Every structure is written in C-alpha cells, then in structure tokens.
Computed example of a mutant assay.
Amino acid sequence: MVKGTTPTNENVDNCPVRQVLAKVTGKWQTLIVLALGDGALRFGELKRAIGDVTQRVLTENLRSLERDGYLTRTVKAGPPVSVHYELTEMGQELRVLQKKMVIWAAESHLAVKQNREAYDAV
C-alpha cells in the first residue's frame, strides 16, 4: 500500500491521499482541467469544450476545483460582465499528470475493450 493511505476504516476521512484523489480523479474534474490547459475560458466556452456536462454539474465541479486551489475564477466588468476560469500553478501540475493518464487511456482502450469482451464471453 502507498504510504499515506489508511489501512483502517476509522481513519478514512483523514487520509490525505483519499482526500486529494477524491477531488481530482473524476471524469468531470479531469475534463475541466484538460480543457483549461491552453488558457482561460469563459463558462460557456468551457461547457462547449466538454460537451455533455450539465450547467449544474459544471458549476459544482468548478467551485470544488476553485476551493481546492486548482483554478481561479475572475470576473471582468462589462458590459457584459464575463467570468473566466484559469488553472493555477497547482492546476497546471495536475494537468501534466492527468494528460499522461488520458494518453495512456486512449492507447489502452482497444486492449481494455478486448479484455472485457473475452471476460464477458466466459
């Protein structure tokens, strides 16, 4: 087991590894971080870049990522008023790690699909 994880159920809520990974390994968090990799985006641009995310889910995930310090939210006076989201330095570091995982996933997809089919055929 990786040092820093907890082997008992009593300490699960205090595990630093679980606390961080729970907030950055989800589908939406990963897609948000990757979409912001080339620079700041407005909410609508970010929603279009991701595609199938609802406004509510995108808002919740943006707030969570902002709370944890992975991105910043900047309101620019209008008219019209615009809100931009941009990765922080920590968000950029996370993006590098997530990008490697996404590349691995794309390269491994065929093998995973074949393994699933073989497993299901049994």
Score class of each variant (00 low, 15 high):
K113A: 14
E89C: 03
E89G: 10
K47D: 07
T88M: 00
M1S: 11
G37A: 08
A118D: 12
C15S: 15
E66V: 01
P80Q: 08
L65S: 04
T59N: 15
T5Y: 04
T5R: 10
K76R: 14
R42L: 07
Q114W: 10
L46H: 05
Q92P: 00
G44C: 04
L62I: 09
A105G: 05
L58W: 02
W28V: 15
A121L: 10
D120L: 15
S108P: 00
L71V: 06
G69S: 01
L87H: 00
E45V: 01
M101K: 05
L71M: 07
L46I: 02
A121E: 14
G69Q: 01
V83Y: 02
A105T: 07
T6W: 00
L58K: 05
G51A: 08
E60K: 14
M101F: 06
K76I: 14
A77S: 14
L34M: 14
C15K: 09
R18D: 00
V57L: 11
I50R: 15
V96R: 07
E10P: 01
P16A: 07
R67W: 05
E117P: 01
K23L: 08
K47T: 11
R48Y: 02
T72N: 15
G78Q: 02
A111K: 14
K100E: 15
S108M: 15
L41P: 01
E93F: 03
P79F: 11
G26C: 03
R116T: 05
V81E: 13
A118Q: 10
T6S: 12
R48W: 02
F43I: 09
G4V: 00
K3S: 12
N115I: 05
L110V: 15
L62Q: 07
L71F: 07
L97M: 09
T88I: 00
V102R: 12
Y70H: 09
T74D: 06
I50L: 11
R63F: 02
Q98R: 08
G44V: 07
A49F: 03
T8H: 03
Y119N: 08
E117A: 10
L97Q: 10
D52I: 10
Y70G: 03
R18E: 03
E93Y: 07
P7W: 00
R67Y: 14
L94H: 04
T74A: 05
T59P: 05
D52S: 13
A121T: 10
D120H: 07
G4M: 00
T72K: 14
G26R: 01
V24W: 01
V12Y: 10
E45C: 03
K23W: 03
